[in-house]
């Protein structure tokens, strides 16, 4: 499980995270929501040791962040950051192939290659496999980066706004994939979502952050209410129950 204990983070005089504690048990899809600047990306970066911890502690299973082997963690946890930039000289297949690096360390075997092809299929990237990243559309590129995190094949998968640039079909397909990872392989998927309706449709649990702290945490039906939207997002929106789950009318 991912165990976040009393994590605070500041940049200069700005307090970005305030004493955040969060336990994410193995298995399931957990959505992370909250207004812009709430600290969601910072929290994910800290868990994936992309930024260094200032106070508190984070453990991923038995691996202590800040003290554990980078390679061991890369085999246990994958992250898709909110902003990705990659060398434009890579083809899509090259990029996705790098996702297997923590396992083969530069010498891919037949199985590694098969996994890459499988992911290219899964994310509908076959038509672009040999294209260079710079020639892709925003959504195509986003899918390539998601596929790269996917083939890393880790117990924990952190995705920061993976639906950016994705069309309706691609968004639903991706969420269904993630759901399937959790259901059939027991993986833990943590996903930052701005569209609350995707969160209620696909997540088992929604964690809401605001001002660097967790302000709501629970099953979609408990968390997504008109009162929560009012207090957290400061917006009046109606919430109705449809198909057994809350839906925000925008």
């Amino acid at each position: 499980m991912i165990d976040v204990q009393g994590v605070s983070y500041r940049i200069g005089s700005a307090q970005i995270l305030r004493n955040v504690s969060l336990q994410l048990r193995r298995g399931g899809v957990i959505a992370l929501a909250g207004p812009n600047g709430a600290g969601k990306s910072t929290l994910l970066s800290l868990v994936a040791r992309l930024q260094s911890l200032q106070s508190g502690r984070i453990a991923v299973d038995d691996l202590e962040i800040g003290a554990c082997d980078d390679r061991a963690l890369a085999r246990k946890l994958a992250i898709l950051p909110q902003h990705v930039n990659a060398s434009s000289r890579l083809t899509v297949r090259d990029l996705v192939g790098f996702g297997r690096y923590p396992h083969h360390r530069g010498r891919p075997d037949a199985q590694d290659r098969a996994r890459v092809e499988e992911a290219l299929q899964l994310f509908d990237l076959m038509p672009f496999a040999q294209r260079h990243l710079e020639t892709l559309s925003g959504g195509q590129r986003q899918r390539a980066f998601v596929a790269m995190a996917y083939v890393q094949d880790t117990d924990f998968l952190l995705l920061d706004e993976p639906l950016n640039n994705l069309d309706l079909a691609a968004s639903r397909a991706l969420m269904a994939q993630l759901r399937d990872l959790a259901d059939s392989k027991g993986r833990t998927v943590v996903i930052v979502l701005h569209d609350i309706n995707y969160a209620t449709a696909y997540a088992d649990r929604i964690v809401v952050m605001k001002g660097g702290a967790v302000v709501a945490d629970g099953a979609p039906r408990e968390v997504v209410t008109e009162a929560m939207l009012r207090s957290v997002f400061e917006t009046e929106a109606r919430v109705e129950i449809a198909a057994g789950r809350p839906v925000v009318l925008v």
Binding site: R49, L73, A74, V84, A86, S87, P102
Partner: peptide
């Protein structure tokens, strides 16, 4: 790049 390299271990 540093971010991608780190997340690949």
């Amino acid at each position: 790049g540093p971010t991608a390299a780190l997340s690949l271990g």
